[in-house]
Design a binder for these strands. Structure first.
Lengths: 153, 153
DNA sequence: AAAATAAAAGACAAAATAGTCCGATATTGT
DNA sequence: ACAATATCGGACTATTTTGTCTTTTATTTT
């Protein structure tokens, strides 16, 4: 659905909101490790997110990435837009038709339209902040837990 | 959502089912033009679809691509599988987690799960044949109609 | 002020995807 | 049998995406 870069971006921003809400600053290595993404590539992505105002950063010792306390609420769609430059990906037709719409539907428009609209609304209406609670309580997860072969008791 | 190759493939197969149901054979140029895709690339894709048994073909004069009358019903998911070699794309997590599931959900799993499953079911349960009627009656479309500037009356 | 630290910036490199081209092969009509 | 036609198969090119590396710049600590 989304590019790797966008997936990493979403995971990174969510992570920063968990650990960085109190103003704490997160380094590239910390973030890359937590979201299970390549280190240098994660740096590139964080750079883009900062430039686009999704997160904030400071250089130097004790620097890193954090949540700008006076920025307005960031949604999942905001992250997507920051990474692609637009939110076309939330609107595109499954068959790739540029003009697919209710009035000019592709053969499976009726069947999937509801889904696409729903996902778009979820992305537009879900703030990153709203995801933090479940995550920090361990009800949702940001990366795959390695399955252990067995436990010694 | 899908690769360009997969989009072309879906459009191509649907078209072949419209024009080729009575055993008529469609050439690469005819198909490429109708689905608005690059000629040679369309050839490549049709080759794959034929190899995978989604459609049939004969070489030589009056040859081309057609619907094998004794093949079992082809679904949208069959086309997707033919192009990717699997149907992973119908199962993947929005955030790119390999193990995302009800028991081990990503932060937005709950919000999008129902609809992802819906799309998968649509793809698996919708046969190409079932799309033909609306299409040939002009209720759905396979390519963008160029908008004319004006009509002379 | 100097040293240390961490992100920013930009040039590269690798891999995947998209797309082209051409010779070989199969089929049909004459 | 021969010529014409259309897909098949594979090599090749182009573009985009993914990822790395090195230098510069900003900030903080000593």
């Amino acid at each position: 659905m989304f590019s790797k870069a966008c997936e990493y971006a979403l995971r990174a921003v969510i992570f920063i909101y968990i650990k960085g809400v109190n103003g704490a600053r997160l380094s590239i290595p910390e973030i890359a490790k937590e979201i299970d993404a390549p280190l240098a590539y994660t740096g590139k992505i964080l750079q883009t997110l900062t430039r686009e105002g999704v997160i904030a950063s400071v250089k130097g010792p004790n620097g890193g990435f954090f949540v700008d306390p006076q920025a307005k609420a960031v949604t999942l769609a905001d992250v997507v837009k920051a990474m692609y430059g637009n939110d076309d990906v939330l609107h595109t037709c499954v068959l790739g038709l540029k003009e697919c719409s209710d009035k000019f539907p592709c053969p499976i428009h009726a069947q999937v339209k509801g889904y696409r609209d729903h996902v778009r609304k979820v992305m537009e209406n879900t703030t990153i902040r709203s995801l933090v609670n479940d995550l920090s309580k361990g009800r949702t997860f940001l990366k795959n837990v390695r399955q252990r072969k067995s436990f010694r008791k």
